[in-house]
């Protein structure tokens, strides 16, 4: 239990905050799992499992709705202030981002179906290699951002924001490599659009992890770091 969810004179308030805090971690864990499974379906060339990932997205949507109800009720009952208010705002925004991570994972599962269910000539391993690299990268970003949220750890949240810059570079490099493949072998062009959409989905997941890290910094410091350069954020936080 972190300090934000404890210490209220009304103990029920502590419990309600803790419930919401844990709900974010639960939604985060499910979103991470969806991402891992979606990538696995691509590696396993398994459209059936990919359909499982897509149908499992509903569980994430249900938790999103449950979280909405819980924090609306908490606002009605407790009218949170100061760090409680910031925690509720952070939870509300983080849940939205995590739900969208689930949507992006679903897009990757759809990529598996697109490539392996309808086509006899799937792309070669090289073309898909960047997807795996980027998936591991954004998986780490997501993990660190959720840990930063749970432990109220500003340095970890800053790490995620730093990693997002690397991710952008990685994404651009992957696009350049794909362009090279197409130039070298025009027959691969059929899957290029699908693979680019997959990379784009992963790049978006990294963006959501960065957003969550930004909310964590807002939660800890009260400063809104959105739309600010890394240098400005570091200047504000450190």
């Amino acid at each position: 239990m972190n300090k934000i969810t404890e210490g209220h004179t009304v103990k029920r308030f502590d419990e309600e905050m803790l419930f919401l805090h844990r709900l974010v971690l639960q939604i985060g864990s499910l979103a991470q799992d969806q991402l891992r499974r979606a990538i696995q379906t691509l590696n396993d060339k398994d459209p059936t499992a990919a359909r499982g990932v897509i149908s499992r997205d509903q569980a994430l949507n249900d938790l999103d709705v449950q979280a909405d109800e819980a924090f609306i009720n908490l606002i009605i009952k407790r009218q949170p202030m100061a760090k409680d208010l910031r925690e509720i705002i952070t939870i509300s925004k983080a849940v939205s981002d995590l739900e969208r991570v689930g949507d992006e994972a679903r897009k990757i599962a759809q990529l598996t179906i697109q490539i392996y269910d309808t086509d006899n000539s799937p792309p070669n391993k090289q073309v898909l290699r960047d997807i795996n690299t980027m998936a591991a990268f954004v998986g780490d970003m997501l993990e660190i951002s959720l840990t930063a949220f749970d432990e109220l750890d500003a340095p970890k949240a800053l790490d995620v924001i730093r990693l997002d810059s690397e991710l952008e570079e990685e994404y651009r490099s992957a696009l350049r490599r794909l362009t090279t493949f197409v130039i070298e072998d025009a027959r691969t062009i059929g899957h290029m659009v699908d693979v680019v959409l997959g990379l784009r989905a992963l790049e978006r997941i990294g963006g959501h992890a960065k957003n969550i890290a930004g909310y964590v910094l807002f939660l800890i410091t009260g400063s809104d770091v959105r739309h600010k350069s890394l240098e400005r954020i570091e200047g504000q936080i450190i």
Partner: peptide
């Protein structure tokens, strides 16, 4: 004051942690 108080006592009071 109500979103980001700077003093711990203010924060404790407005978040219902004592009083």
């Amino acid at each position: 004051i109500f979103t980001n108080p700077r003093h711990r006592l203010t924060e404790d009071y407005i978040t219902g942690r004592f009083g």
